[in-house]
Design a protein around this nucleic acid. Structure first.
Length: 133
DNA sequence: TTCCTGACTCCAG
DNA sequence: CCTGGAGCCAGGA
């Protein structure tokens, strides 16, 4: 419901490249997957951090969109380690079950309270720093 | 082709 | 402190 009238009066020229059959997903998606898979166990990161690492911090939404497709690619991506900037499990509802995300996080030693990662600042894993920007 | 929505984030009130 | 609006890119109808 955040969407109101808006309509986006600005005609944005979308330079969309045609996907070729046989070719895997876009580099952007694969890049996101690669970063997420490199997240150490017991650590979490945010969409913005990944987006910033990829250089598209303004498009943090696309990271989440890529995660949506993450469940369709192989090997599967630990999307449960990716949360929003508040540490809240915003994407838990998109998993097989609404509780699967926090369950997986708890198994990794992460404390989840009220759909939010405890000590998020401590568990936070910045790809720009850890992977070296 | 156009229009809308979305696993986010920032800024303003 | 909390709520709301705007911007971003990509995909589906």
């Amino acid at each position: 419901m955040k969407k109101k009238a808006s309509k986006k009066a600005t005609p944005t020229p979308r330079l969309k490249k045609a996907p070729v059959e046989g070719v895997k997903e876009y580099t952007f998606f694969e890049d996101v997957y690669a970063v997420v898979r490199q997240i150490p166990k017991g650590r979490v990161t945010s969409y913005g951090a990944i987006a910033a690492y990829l250089g598209t911090k303004l498009s943090a939404r696309m990271v989440g969109w890529a995660m949506n497709a993450a469940g369709y690619v192989t090997p599967k991506v630990p999307a449960q380690r990716v949360v929003n900037r508040n540490g809240m499990l915003t994407g838990k509802h998109h998993f097989a079950t609404p509780t699967l995300m926090e369950e997986l996080l708890k198994k990794e030693g992460i404390v989840v309270e009220n759909d939010t990662v405890k000590n998020f600042d401590k568990k936070f894993w910045d790809p720009s720093v850890e992977l070296g920007l």
